[in-house]
Nucleic acid binder design. Structure first.
Lengths: 202, 202
DNA sequence: ATCGTGATGTCACATACTGCCATATGTCAG
DNA sequence: CTGACATATGGCAGTATGTGACATCACGAT
C-alpha cells in the first residue's frame, strides 16, 4: 500500500476519532465542522472529501458492517435456505465484533453512547439500517431468482433475522459493554429461530 | 373551532400541497423553502412555524398514522395477547386508508411517488417508522408491565406486525394504487400470522 | 370598543454543503 | 535524480437550511 493511501487512511481515522471525542464532549449539534477540521489540522473543505456529510461520520462504521454481511451472504451455498444464510451472515458479524481490535471496540461504543444522547443521529442510523436491509433483500431475492417486489418472502427473511441485531443494539449501554450487546443479539436470534414454524419460508 | 385555528389548518394544508406539487414537478432538492412559501404567500420564516424542517413536510402524514395506531392500541383490552392487539392496530389503520377522503388519498400517493425518486426522503421516512415502532414497543411493554429493554418480546411483536406494513409500502407504485398497497399489506400480515408458531409470544 | 395573546413578517446570523481554480504533494517513467 | 503526470488539498465565493429577537398585525374575550 502506497504512502498516499496510508496517509489518507490516517486522515480518515483521525477525523473520525476527533469528531467522536468532540461530539461526546460538547454535543453533536454544538460541534461545527470547522472545529473538527481544525483538530486534525485539515481544511474544512477537505473534510467533505472524506465524509460526504457530518452524519456520514456516524454512518461510516455502519457501512462497513453492511459490506461484510453482503460478502458473507455471497459466499453461502446457493441452495441453502435463505433464512439459514441470513443467520450465518449475522453470526459472522457477531464474531467479527467479538474479536475486534480495542480501537474499533472503543469507536463502536462511542458511537453507541452518542446515539443515546442525540436522537437525530439514532434516526439516521436506523434509516441506514433499513437501506442495508433493502440491499440484503435484493441479494437474497437475486439468489432465489424471484422479484423482491412480488414475493414478500425475501423481505420477511431479512426482517426477521435483522430484528435480532436491531433489538440487541437498542438495549441501553449502561455501562457500555460490547460483549453484552453481542450476547443479547445472539439470544434474540435464537428466540426468533424458535418462534418460527418449520418450513415457513417455502 | 375558531377562525384562527381554521386559518392555521388551511395554511398547513396549503403549504403541504404546494410543496408536494413543486417537489414532483422540479425535484425535492431543487425546490427551496422560499419558493414554497412564495406559492402560498407566506414568509419563509412562517414555514418553519408549521413544519420544523423541509423533511417534516413528508413525515407529517406518517406522524398522523402513528398517532391513530397508538390510540387503537390503547383501546384494546389489557388481557389480549400483545401480538393480537398489534394486528388489530394495523388492520384499523388499513381500514382508515381504505376509506380516506380523495384528497388524503391523493396526498398519500404523491408522497409515495416522491419517495421513489428521492432516496433521501425514503430514508427519512423509514427512520421515522423505526421511531414509531419504538413508541409502539413502549406502549406494549407498559401494558404487560415489562421492561422493553430487558425482554425482547414486545420488540419482536411490533417488528413482526409492522414488517407487513413496511413491505406493503415498499412495493413500487406503478401505477400508484392505494387499494393495491392496502391489499398487499393485508396479505403479508396473514403470511406473518401463518409463519409463527402458536404460543411463541408467551 | 379595547386590550391581551398569539400569528406573522423582517432582519441578522450561524452552519452545512458545493463548485471552481490554484497550489502542493505523492507517483512513476526515463 | 528529474521532470511530467495524477491526485489531494486549500481558499474563496456562493447557496440553502434553520434559528433567535423584535416589531407589527389580527383574532378573540370581556
Amino acid at each position: 500500500m502506497g504512502l498516499r493511501e496510508r496517509k489518507k487512511e490516517k486522515t480518515r481515522v483521525a477525523l473520525l476519532d476527533a469528531a467522536l471525542d468532540l461530539f461526546l464532549e460538547q454535543g453533536y449539534d454544538s460541534t461545527p465542522i470547522d472545529q473538527i477540521a481544525e483538530a486534525v489540522e485539515v481544511s474544512p473543505r477537505t473534510f467533505f472529501r472524506y465524509f460526504t456529510s457530518k452524519e456520514h461520520l456516524i454512518l461510516w462504521l455502519h457501512d462497513q458492517v453492511e459490506e461484510t454481511m453482503l460478502e458473507v451472504l455471497a459466499d453461502r451455498p446457493a441452495d441453502e435456505p435463505p433464512f439459514v444464510s441470513m443467520t450465518h451472515a449475522l453470526r459472522a458479524q457477531l464474531r467479527t465484533m467479538e474479536y475486534a481490535t480495542p480501537d474499533d471496540v472503543a469507536r463502536f461504543l462511542k458511537v453507541r453512547r452518542l446515539l443515546d444522547t442525540t436522537p437525530h443521529l439514532a434516526h439516521s442510523t436506523f434509516a441506514r439500517a433499513v437501506e442495508s436491509e433493502r440491499r440484503l433483500v435484493e441479494a437474497i431475492a437475486a439468489r432465489q431468482g424471484v422479484d423482491p417486489y412480488e414475493s414478500p418472502l425475501p423481505h420477511l427473511v431479512v426482517t426477521f433475522v435483522m430484528a435480532a441485531m436491531r433489538i440487541g443494539f437498542t438495549c441501553p449501554a449502561d455501562p457500555p459493554d460490547l460483549q453484552k450487546i453481542v450476547r443479547r443479539m445472539e439470544e434474540t436470534l435464537q428466540l426468533v429461530e424458535r418462534s418460527l414454524r418449520p418450513g415457513w419460508d417455502t
